[in-house]
Design a protein around this nucleic acid. Structure first.
Lengths: 204, 204
DNA sequence: ATGCGACCGGGACGATCGTCCCAGTCGGCG
DNA sequence: CGCCGACTGGGACGATCGTCCCGGTCGCAT
C-alpha cells in the first residue's frame, strides 16, 4: 500500500486528487494538508511514501516545505504539482530534492501513474514539465559573470548606474562597462530590456 | 434541483468540486468541461442553472466564455473561480456579467453556499475576492491617459522612444514628453522603472 | 612563469533620455 | 461661447547612458 500525503491550499484540489487516487488499487491518501507548515508536520506524523506538493502556497513555499520534509526523512518521495509558466520555481523545487512533477491539468491516470512511479523511485516527469525544465536550462546559459548578474539584478530593481555604483562601492563607470557587457550577452540593447530580461529570468 | 456545469482545465479541480457538490442536497453536476469552448457548448446542451467557471484557461478565456454563455442564455448564473492576485481579470469577468466569485481555496461549504446563492439570484462574492476588487480599484487610480498607457506598454516591451514614435506615427519628442508625464504619475524616475511598473500592473 | 579571465576604472564621444517651457489643434462641457 | 484637457510637437539644456579603447590588479591554471 502506497501511503500518500496531499499538500495544497485549495480544498477543491485536495478533494479532487483524493477522489482520483481513491479509485486506484494499492494507494491510500493518509492525510492532506492545507499549507506548507502543516504539510511538514503531517509528513512527520503520517509517514507517507509519496507527497503530492503544491508549489504556490501562502505560508510555506512548496520548495521550502520539500526541503524540510526531506531533511526529516529522505526516504520520502516528493512530487511537485505545478501550473504552467513558473520555470524558476520548478528549478527551485528540483534543487530542493523533489522527485518529479505533475502539471495541475494532468488526467487521473497520469496522477496515479506518477504516484506509483515515485513510490518505485522513478522520476515521474511530466513530459511537458520536462520541456519547461529543459527550455529553462537552455535559456539560462548566458554565461554571465557574478558581477554582471549582480548588476542586472539591481538594474531590474530600477536603480540608476550611480546608485548601483554606490551600493556596490565601485565606480559608476565600471557599472556602465559591466552592464554593457551583460547586455551584449543577453541580447539586450539597453538597461530597460536588460531589466525586463532579468525579471523574466527569475533574476528578480 | 440546481443543475451545475463545471468549467476548468484541471481535471483534479473538476473532480474535487464535483465531490464537494455531490454530497450536498438539491445540487447536481450535470456536466463538466475542460476548456472555455467546450464550456460554451455544454452550457447550451446541458442547460445548467449555475456555471462554475475557471478564469485561466488555455483555449477560451473565462471572461470570454462567460460572455458567450450569457449571450446564448442570460438566465444562467456564472460564478467565477479565481486564484489570488489577478485583479484585472476579476474586473474583466465582472464586466462579462459574472454573478459572483469564488476563491479556489474556498472550503466545501463555501462552494455549496455560493452555488445556492447564485441559483437564487444572489451574488456570492467571496469577502476576500471583494477586497481584491476594491483594492484593485484603489490601486488603479494612476489616472493615465490612453496614450500614456499605450506608450508605457511599448516601453515595457523594451522599445526605445524612436521606435515607439515610429510605431505610433508621432514625433519622438512627443513620446518623451508623454512618457515623462506618465512617469510622474506612476512614481517612476525613468523608463526602466516605468517598464517594470507596467509589467507588474498587468499592463504587459 | 606566462597567460587568461574576472574585476576595476579612466577618457572620450555620440546617442538617448528626462525635463521644462512654450504653443498649436481638437473635442467635450458648462 | 469660453474653458479645459488630451494630444501633438519644437527648443534647449543637462544628465544619463552605451560603447570603444585603453590601462591596471588580482587569482588561477597550464
Amino acid at each position: 500500500m502506497i501511503r500518500v500525503l496531499l499538500v495544497d491550499d485549495h480544498p477543491a484540489l485536495r478533494a479532487g486528487l483524493e477522489s482520483m487516487l481513491s479509485v486506484a488499487d494499492g494507494l491510500e491518501v493518509v492525510a492532506s494538508a492545507a499549507g506548507g507548515r502543516e504539510g511538514v508536520t503531517l509528513a512527520a506524523s503520517s509517514r507517507p511514501d509519496v507527497v503530492l506538493m503544491d508549489l504556490e502556497m501562502p505560508d510555506l513555499d512548496g520548495a521550502a516545505a520539500t526541503r524540510a520534509i526531506l531533511a526529516a526523512d529522505d526516504g520520502v518521495r516528493v512530487v511537485v504539482l505545478t501550473s504552467f509558466g513558473d520555470r524558476p520555481r520548478i528549478l527551485e523545487a528540483l534543487d530542493a530534492g523533489a522527485t518529479g512533477y505533475l502539471l495541475k491539468d494532468a488526467e487521473p491516470e497520469e496522477v496515479v501513474r506518477a504516484v506509483r512511479a515515485a513510490a518505485n523511485g522513478d522520476a515521474p516527469l511530466d513530459p511537458r514539465a520536462a520541456r519547461e525544465v529543459l527550455s529553462a536550462q537552455r535559456e539560462t546559459p548566458p554565461d554571465l559573470t557574478e558581477r554582471e548578474r549582480e548588476i542586472l539584478t539591481l538594474v531590474a530593481a530600477g536603480h540608476a548606474n550611480k546608485v548601483i555604483a554606490l551600493r556596490l562601492g565601485i565606480s559608476h563607470k565600471t557599472v556602465r562597462n559591466t552592464l554593457s557587457a551583460a547586455c551584449r550577452k543577453i541580447g539586450a540593447t539597453d538597461r530597460t530590456q536588460a531589466a525586463l530580461w532579468a525579471q523574466r529570468s527569475g533574476l528578480a
